[in-house]
Design a binder for these strands. Structure first.
Length: 300
DNA sequence: TTAGGGTTACAG
DNA sequence: CTGTAACCCTAA
């Protein structure tokens, strides 16, 4: 009937995660009012955020408090089957402890000082999508705009531009993004074209909430490790275990980084090529225009 | 406003 | 039919 169940998009989930990292879990209203996330979450309510976060937590856990209650209500008899542990980390978690100490989520700074590189590498993949989504530019956003957006919001590594180029290229060849006229937009592959119940634009939804300006006062560093650490905390792991997870995340990031770095060279070449082609095309266009338009002949 | 229990729509 | 994700209701 009237409520066609709006499924959460990866972009929305990413925004929610970022919002939780920034403002903390439970501050749903705050997250919603944050200009950074209101762009993506403008049609979700604070309750929606809460529910979604609950769902995601359950997923990350494998067996949240909710399912436990549910299972307790229906199944009991017969020996408890030893279900496989989704976590590679051996210790604990299996026992039904409900210690999801939320206070740990509000830690002032990441206690897990990751060894070696202090490169803050937020999963570029999602970040790019987030940027394009949040920018909401009709026709997509160009590389510079995306780069500026991300650099404004997060700490960017020195070679960030190259990485971005590489990723952008990868995504376009991959079909995840569509590049048209040096602008990139998200390729909605037959999935979401007309979702959303009320297609009304955000307009002046939040009087003070929807301004193009971003609060730079608290630029904060979003790390994949940090997010993973949060999730680990939700899983009820100890700090050490969480640290392992976080470290692992960083390792992955490093690997991805190296890979991207390698691809960057080719990407640069491609960029140069494209640039040249563009210039050539522009020149050709100009010439063509001048010829086919005798009236407005170039000379004054 | 939020947390949590309950309900409904949807996919497998 | 069953499990899950989105949605709803309400106490605190």
């Amino acid at each position: 009937m009237g409520a066609p169940k709006q499924k959460w998009t990866p972009e929305e989930e990413a925004a929610l995660k970022a919002g939780v990292v920034k403002h903390g879990a439970g501050k749903w209203r705050t997250i919603l009012k944050d200009p950074e996330f209101s762009g993506v979450l403008f049609l979700r309510s604070n309750v929606d955020l809460k529910d979604k976060w609950r769902n995601m937590s359950v997923m990350a856990n494998g067996w949240g408090s909710r399912e436990k209650a549910r299972l307790a209500l229906r199944k009991v008899p017969s020996a408890p089957k030893a279900e496989e542990n989704p976590l590679s980390l051996g210790t604990a978690v299996q026992s039904d402890d409900e210690t999801v100490d939320t206070k740990a989520l509000a830690l002032p700074s990441n206690p897990v000082q990751i060894t070696g590189s202090k490169r803050s590498f937020s999963r570029l993949d999602n970040l790019i999508l987030e940027a394009i989504t949040n920018l909401k530019e009709p026709g997509g956003s160009n590389k510079t705009t995306i780069a500026t957006y991300i650099e404004d919001q997060y700490r960017a590594p020195p070679n960030f531009k190259r990485l971005l180029s590489a990723k952008l290229k990868f995504f376009t060849t991959n079909g995840k993004l569509v590049k048209v006229k040096r602008k990139y937009r998200i390729a909605h592959t037959q999935a979401f074209s007309e979702r959303r119940r009320n297609s009304s634009m955000p307009f002046l939804e939040g009087r003070q909430g929807f301004s193009p300006k971003v609060d730079k006062d608290d630029i904060h560093i979003l790390t994949k490790a940090q997010v993973d650490f949060e999730l680990a905390q939700m899983r009820g792991m100890t700090a050490e275990e969480a640290a392992i997870v976080a470290a692992r995340a960083v390792a992955e990031a490093e690997a991805a980084l190296a890979e991207a770095e390698e691809a960057a060279r080719e990407a640069d070449a491609a960029e140069a090529d494209a640039e040249a082609a563009q210039a050539f095309a522009a020149a050709a266009m100009k010439t063509l225009k001048g010829r086919s338009n005798p009236k407005t002949n170039g000379h004054p």
